[in-house]
Design a protein around this nucleic acid. Structure first.
Length: 592
RNA sequence: CGGGGCGUAGCGCAGUCUGGCUAGCGCAUCUGGUUUGGGACCAGAGGGUCGCCGGUUCAAAUCCGGCCGCCCCGACCA
């Protein structure tokens, strides 16, 4: 391809509104163009990279034994009604209706395809002999994001690989799941991503039933806890907390005292008002679990974790109580709840860290008042202690007790054991070997293909621009004729372009009538892995220049045989990405 | 949906507070010339419903009201 025949609108300046590196660089390098909030055109270069990512996904899914199909993006609303997900998705589901003759047909744009694929399975899978089978597609998904942001990281329309496994037993599901897990590792390895497979909040099957694939990045929306000691990694919603030092400090018990705290309803306000640290305070949260109110105590500087609470109290449904309920059970408006005296009215659960508090500050269950000198046993006694909070940076690892590291990350993939939720709702049943009719056991597996690009750029750029691995680069080789007006330069460049292209190398020839500096800047900005420069000086000695994007120095090589040499280099790097990886590793080491 | 910011040429911005010359600058584009290894230089040219609607005024990019759009923080996120 020649530059002048493509559409590559690179920009010198950062467009107004773009902040994070991936967004800035994708716009500046002419990969994407924004159409509206949350919707982007993939320009020729961006589309090439996106297709390469999709192709890697496709190859590895095929290798793992999954079969590709394509389901429609428009779906009948009735399918979503059957599984109750019209309500579950709410405004995220993009619904619309069309007129057909004398009736209206209600539809939704697919945000994911469990319903459609399960309906398909219900029609065609009726025997255990047809399983295991895993179906997948690479398709545009639609979700009406409340607030699209971060460039292509959170958009209302995105390319997703979604796969669904169908098994006759939980054991078989485990094998299907493991195959997908391994395929994901190969996919992200091939894409040159530094990722973590983290434990995520699991579904109905429990155990290690869900993993998210995360790329640690400063701008990631997710939070993961990672143990550098043993490798344990989990989403903050899932992360367990190791044994804590629960011995109460050797501080004498203070007198229980009520103090006026007018208008101070938050931990921050009370902390400021009374001059006490948040970690000396008890946050009392009133929840409603399956219809019954209960209180949860966590330390002032901790965050309650609803999934852990739900598990601890054995509730199906759990939500923070509304103000009316809070006022009824505590006798005070929101912001003044405390454990003292609450036990007589509702069950009180405490996070384990509460056990180590001495002379704490809590709400007084009375408007504009708090209690100081509050102590466990003397003043209140929970019905139980459990791990009820989100893990924090520095908390002990549940496996090895080393300290957990908190990192922000971009979620690029998710594997999940679904169980029978959808097969039961949509009557996808099969006959087993004992002639019993049973619901199919499912798993689902998603990859955000756009996010592969964004995550890569977010973690692989320098001051000059993107640094692509060969696997994802829009073009593998960038040919720069220094002076396009020089006939010999242009002849050699053109020949090299044709020869490399014929050998199956993705090459872009910068045939613009521009000064060399402009071309070099764009080469670095877009980040083509291998830059080949053809200049008059070198040509006089029969030499051209070759440089990897991630290296500082260029190497001169004989024009004679250059085509083969370039082809070899690209092919090696295609296979292993070894050069890219070692640059990444060196860079990471430097950063630490 | 709460809080904040922004909207002027393809892109980045100044001008708005304190209303008044023909709405300006840099980049990009076009023409001619000189250049040609890290975003060249000279001369000239084209390109604008100042987000939209309404109001105030002799006069509105500028003041007032409403709306729309974009970005950031928060809430939400199968």
């Amino acid at each position: 391809m020649r530059w002048t025949q493509s559409l590559i609108p690179t920009m010198k300046e950062t467009p107004d509104g773009a902040e994070i590196p991936s967004h800035v660089l994708m716009l500046r390098a002419g990969l994407v163009s924004q159409v509206m909030a949350g919707a982007y055109t993939y320009l020729p270069l961006g589309w090439r990279s996106l297709r390469k990512a999709a192709q890697i996904v496709r190859e590895e899914m095929d290798a793992a034994g999954a079969v590709e199909l394509l389901m429609p993006a428009i779906t009948p609303i009735s399918l979503w009604e059957q599984t109750g997900r019209v309500e579950a998705f709410g405004d995220v589901l993009i619904q619309f209706s069309v007129r057909r003759q004398n009736r209206k047909v209600q539809m939704a744009l697919g945000p994911t395809h469990e319903e459609v694929v399960t309906d398909l399975a219900a029609r065609y899978i009726s025997s255990y002999r047809q399983m295991p089978i895993t179906l997948y597609q690479i398709q545009t998904k639609f979700r009406n994001e409340e607030r699209p942001r971060f460039g292509v990281l959170r958009t209302s329309e995105f390319l997703m690989k979604d796969a669904y496994s169908f098994d006759a037993s939980v054991e078989d599901l485990g094998r299907s799941y493991q195959k997908m897990y391994s395929a994901y590792c190969r996919i992200f390895d091939r894409c040159g991503l530094n990722y973590l497979a983290v434990e995520a909040e699991s579904g109905p099957i429990g155990g290690d039933a869900s993993h998210e694939f995360m790329v640690p990045a400063a701008n990631g929306e997710d939070t993961v806890l990672h143990c550098l000691g043993c490798g344990y990694a989990a989403n903050v919603e899932k992360a367990e907390i190791g044994p804590l030092d629960c011995a109460a400090p050797a501080e004498p018990l203070a007198e229980l005292r009520k103090v006026d705290t007018p208008g101070a309803t938050t931990i921050e306000q009370v902390s400021k008002f009374l001059g006490c640290a948040p970690e000396k305070m008890v946050k009392t949260l009133i929840y409603v679990a399956d219809g019954d109110p209960l209180a949860v105590l966590v330390r002032g500087d901790h965050e309650a974790n609803e999934a852990k609470i739900r598990r601890a109290v054995g509730a199906q449904k759990l939500a923070l109580a509304d103000p009316a309920v809070i006022e009824r059970v505590t006798g005070a408006p929101v912001g003044f709840a405390g454990p003292v005296g609450l036990r007589e009215k509702i069950p009180v659960w405490a996070d384990r860290a509460i056990g180590a508090l001495r002379n704490a500050v809590t709400g007084a269950n009375q408007a504009d008042a708090h209690l100081t000198g509050v102590n466990l046993e003397r003043d209140f006694q929970p019905v139980g202690f459990a791990d009820l909070r989100n893990a924090q940076h520095g908390d002990p690892c549940p496996r090895c007790s080393a300290r957990l590291t908190l990192r922000h990350a971009i979620e690029i993939g998710h594997v999940f054991k679904l169980g029978t939720k959808y097969s039961e709702a949509l009557s996808a049943r099969f006959l087993d070997g004992q002639e019993q009719l049973r619901p199919i056991i499912m798993g689902c597996y998603g990859i955000g293909v756009n996010r592969i690009l964004a995550a890569l750029i977010e973690t692989s750029h320098d001051a000059n621009g993107i640094v692509w691995p060969v696997a994802l680069a829009p073009y593998e080789v960038f040919l720069v004729p220094v002076n396009a007006a020089d006939p010999e330069t242009s002849r050699v460049a053109s020949q090299l372009h044709d020869d490399l292209t014929a050998l199956g190398i993705d090459v872009l020839l910068d045939d613009r009538d521009q000064r060399a500096g402009v071309k070099f800047k764009d080469a670095d900005l877009i980040g083509f892995p291998l830059r080949v420069v053809i200049g008059e000086r070198g040509l006089k000695q029969g030499k051209i220049e070759i440089k990897w994007r991630w290296e500082d120095k260029a190497a001169m090589t004989d024009l004679d045989g250059a085509c083969e040499q370039i082809t070899d280099l690209v092919r090696q790097e295609r296979g292993t990405g070894a050069r890219f990886r070692s640059w990444q590793a060196a860079r990471q080491k430097k950063a630490e």
